[in-house]
């Protein structure tokens, strides 16, 4: 489980031995619920996570990582090249200027791509190879394609 800001997960299942998960369940955060990582604390051990009702909770990354979750959104910057692995652009967290810049580079929402290189990011899309800097990659939210 990648713990980065703006990553989103869906809880898939909670096992009998998972005390953290069981407690979440009794609080109404059930399998099928969304979790969005809002903020990663100092050196990554404590996280602020937004749950379905728009409420923020603080949890520890170690406990969260034990949860059986499915990745549904992650900033491009957190990914590394993997042959054959495809992703789809979900949205941009930057402002209007950033979206225009991406448009000029022929990157738009719903585009499917493969990562060729990660420093800087080289993406293989149907328009050819597109390059994005690390700062830009932080603002590009993508989801894995099966």
């Amino acid at each position: 489980m990648k713990i980065v800001e703006n990553a989103e997960y869906i809880i898939q299942s909670v096992t009998d031995v998972d005390r953290f998960g069981k407690r979440l369940v009794q609080m109404g955060v059930l399998p099928g619920s969304h979790l969005k990582i809002i903020r990663v604390g100092f050196r990554g051990s404590t996280l602020e996570v937004m749950i379905d009702q728009g409420q923020s909770i603080a949890v520890r990354s170690k406990e969260l990582a034990m949860l059986d979750c499915k990745l549904i959104a992650i900033p491009l910057s957190a990914l590394s090249p993997e042959k054959g692995r495809k992703y789809k652009i979900k949205n941009f967290t930057g402002g209007r200027g950033f979206i225009q810049k991406m448009k000029n580079r022929k990157i738009s929402i719903s585009d499917i791509f493969e990562i060729l290189e990660s420093h800087p990011f080289e993406l293989k899309t149907r328009h050819g190879t597109i390059v994005a800097g690390h700062g830009e990659a932080e603002k590009i939210i993508v989801e894995p394609v099966n």
Binding site: L24, T46, E48, A58
Partner: peptide
Amino acid sequence: PEPFIMEIP
């Protein structure tokens, strides 16, 4: 220790 889940209001 209980699992750490704290609401941030």
